[in-house]
């Protein structure tokens, strides 16, 4: 497909060869989506899948010019991945990735005003990952209850300590069980 057309029109976007997708900055997302929806070459009228991904901060080794290796902190971010298809032309998919600046205050513009089909999927990402979609008409928790405060699909989510007895606990489970039963014994 003429994906070059997107990168030409929007120089801020970047083609990622490894994942076969287009990385779009969140400032340009709505323009790009509007472009692929209405441009006669694409006519992507159907957003199939919207999913969130959590990338934790990590340390990466960078080789300097003199050969010494230094560790650099790479900040973590959240990512929203869109898969677009065209029902009219039966083409697709075009994959867009939109990254947030950080994991603390993640904001991505909502594409729900353009595609109704993204409404519940964006709500789900808000619920499970905590990405806030600006311009979403009804951004509430969808799967968990309203009083819930965590974002459980994030990689660093700590689940509540309600682990129960297991015949052969090991590793993490054993640590958890020990902690659980010691606190339980203290209460009773």
């Amino acid at each position: 497909m003429k994906l070059d057309l997107i990168t030409q029109n929007f120089p801020t976007t970047k083609w990622d060869e490894a994942t076969q997708s287009l990385i779009v900055p969140h400032t340009d997302l709505l323009n790009v989506v509007d472009f692929i929806k209405n441009n006669p070459g694409f006519e992507m009228d159907y957003v199939s899948n919207v999913s969130g991904v959590d990338w934790l901060p990590k340390k990466e080794k960078v080789k300097a010019a003199d050969g010494t290796e230094t560790e650099v902190d790479k900040p973590g971010f959240l990512e929203v991945v869109y898969h677009f298809y065209s029902m009219k032309n039966r083409t697709g998919p075009i994959t867009l990735r939109c990254r947030t600046e950080n994991r603390e205050n993640p904001i991505v513009p909502s594409i729900t005003p353009l595609y109704r089909g993204a409404e519940f999927q964006e709500r789900e990402i808000y619920d499970l990952y905590g990405v806030r979609f600006s311009g979403h008409p009804d951004l509430r928790r969808i799967l968990m209850w309203d009083e819930f405060q965590d974002f459980p699909m994030r990689k660093d989510y700590q689940e509540p300590d309600d682990y129960e007895w297991e015949p052969t606990p090991h590793d993490e489970v054993l640590e958890k069980a020990k902690h659980h039963y010691s606190s339980d014994a203290a209460k009773s």
Binding site: W145, E147, F148, D150, E164, W165, Y181
Partner: peptide, 21 residues
């Protein structure tokens, strides 16, 4: 009741007694 992280209480002490290890 629905709590911020879990149900409150997570179990009914009068009904369910966790096994001690």
């Amino acid at each position: 009741r629905f709590g911020a992280h879990d149900l409150e209480p997570p179990f009914n002490r009068a009904v369910w007694h966790p096994q001690k290890i």
